[in-house]
């Protein structure tokens, strides 16, 4: 019997070692301090600075878990009532709306929030609020393209751009939401005509807006679609960055907008802290400084009283029209948008 004990002991020790190792990695230190857990689709770097300021002011620790918007939604579903997350923060209005409709987010109302966030940038029931806004619009090389040629997304379907168009692949949520908004504003048939026109122009698919801008700068493409802040970030580094931006669809419903937004989860263990963080983000956190959410990434604030980052001034010009009306439909139309993209063989 002694021999059995020996081998059992070896096995148990090994197993224990593995579990201890794994769990020492797994469990973040439980502290007695006030915390708020955030599921965030924004990566490390920009966010730490924002949250550091919040923690300094309020003493509330912010714990981040990051992943893509889709992965976070999936996780929130799987967590159910046991979710550790208090705040669900993603970079896509569609995902927020889906989460809200599935009952994963709880309605939150407060005077601060109502005042800071205009109605078109929040859920009417208060299940989510936008924190910053970004436009996905048309960029071009002014040496080769006149801005009049590229006033609308539909213009890029013109065969003259064959071989001159740079686009982001269909796997990215930006492409999916843009397609969803085209379906929402122009109907499925027209949206499909436009997207098919892009694909027929044999676009160069590049999974990076920055690289799309650089590729236009280098001359491989003449036009493309990127989020506005990539142009802003480029301009911050080089004021003479040659690629220009057009606010698309100004004769129609306005340029495609998406948001970074957040909602308090239905089962948030630290609900009050989550609301405090939310309120902070739409008020004090709206500044143009690098350490704030809009400022750090050249995005537009949602709070009308907040100042937009300086670098955007030249881009904004005399102002432009934004298509807020479709913002809440991206989620509902996501599946249709994916099917459409697959149908036209958008890569």
């Amino acid at each position: 019997m002694k021999t059995i004990n020996y081998s059992t002991r070896v096995a148990l020790t090994g197993m224990l070692a593995a579990v201890v190792l794994a769990s020492s990695v797994a469990s973040p230190a439980q502290a007695q301090t006030q915390v708020v857990n955030v599921y965030s689709a924004r990566h490390y770097g920009a966010l730490e600075k924002v949250f550091a300021e919040f923690t300094k002011e309020t003493g509330i620790q912010v714990r981040l878990s990051s992943g893509s918007s889709q992965a976070l939604l999936e996780r929130l579903r799987a967590d159910g009532k046991q979710t550790p997350a208090d705040l669900f923060m993603v970079i896509d209005a569609g995902t927020l709306q889906l989460a809200a409709e599935e009952g994963l987010l709880q309605p939150v109302r407060s005077e601060v929030l109502d005042k800071a966030v205009p109605p078109e940038l929040r859920d009417p029931e208060g299940r989510w609020y936008a924190l910053s806004q970004r436009m996905r619009t048309i960029v071009y090389n002014p040496a080769k393209v006149k801005p009049e040629e590229v006033q609308d997304y539909a213009d890029l379907a013109n065969p003259k751009w064959r071989g001159r168009l740079c686009l982001r692949p269909a796997t990215h949520i930006y492409t999916i939401s843009l397609t969803a908004s085209l379906i929402a504003t122009r109907g499925a048939r027209e949206a499909e005509r436009i997207v098919r026109g892009w694909v027929n122009n044999r676009p160069q698919f590049i999974d990076s807006d920055t690289r799309i801008l650089e590729t236009i700068e280098a001359g491989r493409c003449d036009v493309g679609i990127t989020n506005h802040y990539y142009v802003g970030n480029k301009l911050k580094a080089n004021a003479n960055f040659p690629v220009k931006l057009v606010w698309a669809n100004q004769k129609g419903a306005g340029v495609h907008v998406n948001i970074t937004g957040a909602g308090v989860t239905a089962a948030a263990p630290n609900r009050d802290n989550a609301i405090r963080l939310l309120e902070w983000l739409v008020t004090k956190g709206q500044g143009p400084a690098d350490t704030h959410l809009p400022g750090g990434n050249s995005e537009f604030p949602v709070n009308p009283s907040a100042q937009a980052p300086k670098v955007l001034e030249s881009l904004v010009g005399t102002g432009f029209k934004i298509d807020y009306a479709t913002l809440r439909q991206y989620g509902k139309l996501q599946a249709d948008a994916i099917k459409l993209l697959e149908r036209v063989r958008y890569q």
Partner: peptide
């Protein structure tokens, strides 16, 4: 890095087990 090493060592121990 700690996560990575934890996964790697844990997996190695379990594989051997």
């Amino acid at each position: 890095l700690a996560n990575t090493l934890g996964f790697a060592l844990g997996a190695a121990a379990l594989v051997l087990l």
